[in-house]
Amino acid sequence: MQVPAYVEYEKATSLTHALSLLAKFGPEARVLAGGHSLIPMMKLRLAQPETLIDINGLTELSYLDSTGTELRIGAMTRHAELLGSRLAGQHFPILHDAERVIADPVVRLWGTVGGSLCQADPSEDLSAAFAALEATMVIAGIEGKRTVPAREFHIGPYETVVGPGEILTEIKIALMPGGGSAYEKVGRRAGDWPVAAAGAAVWLEGNLIRTAGIGLTAVGAPQFAAREAEESLIGAPATQEAFARAGRLAAEHCRPVFDQRGPVEYKRHLASELTVRALRRAVERARG
């Protein structure tokens, strides 16, 4: 029988209330969103917070809308809500590709976008998708809000820049015309963490790639991004050769480790191949 260790529990009723509870209970308090990452970690004693601050009542953090220049995703948005959002899918199909392969439909109904990001598992899918899209994270503290680029959000495995008294409240993605995006994942079985996965977001000008973002997960890419691969694409024609070169660079510059999901060489192979496939599909979508 797996149960979490003894813990105190507080139910937050608003963002302000949650922040004041975090201030009151100090650095050993943890925010509890859907709990589908945190509670399993607590069962295994990999996380042992003294106090849980439950933010499931914070409907103010549950939204998905467009300001005209940005798509805004509230941190308490459930995975199923992101997957079900026509708005998100229309602008950034990469998000739907990724959500479709995150855990299973029941877990997606309760697990949250913000919770997944803050858990900061090095194999997490949305971290790679948001890295590809160069999203911006909004973090609230008692003093106010600050923004951090997605590519500066993670400090390392299971660690983010969200401080002890802070809460991730929103993810923002700039809306730019002429783009396409896609996510490709290989897992051992349905609903599993990836052996490797790659996301691509491209913006075209004619047949030339104006901007490209490539996200990688589960293969030890710094900040879930493949910068060298991206640089090789900017200004290049959107051809299979360019995709193949980007794939090679993505594989060269990531640092996968051998574990129960596979050996290093296999993961590098996947990093390359999935980058190519994601780019191909992203470009197809950009061309409409």
Partner: peptide, 16 residues
């Protein structure tokens, strides 16, 4: 079901 939603109740606290 928790309210209108199926959940895996081994991963939800009773407090929630």
């Amino acid at each position: 079901w928790l309210d209108e939603t199926p959940v895996k109740s081994c991963t939800v606290l009773a407090a929630m």
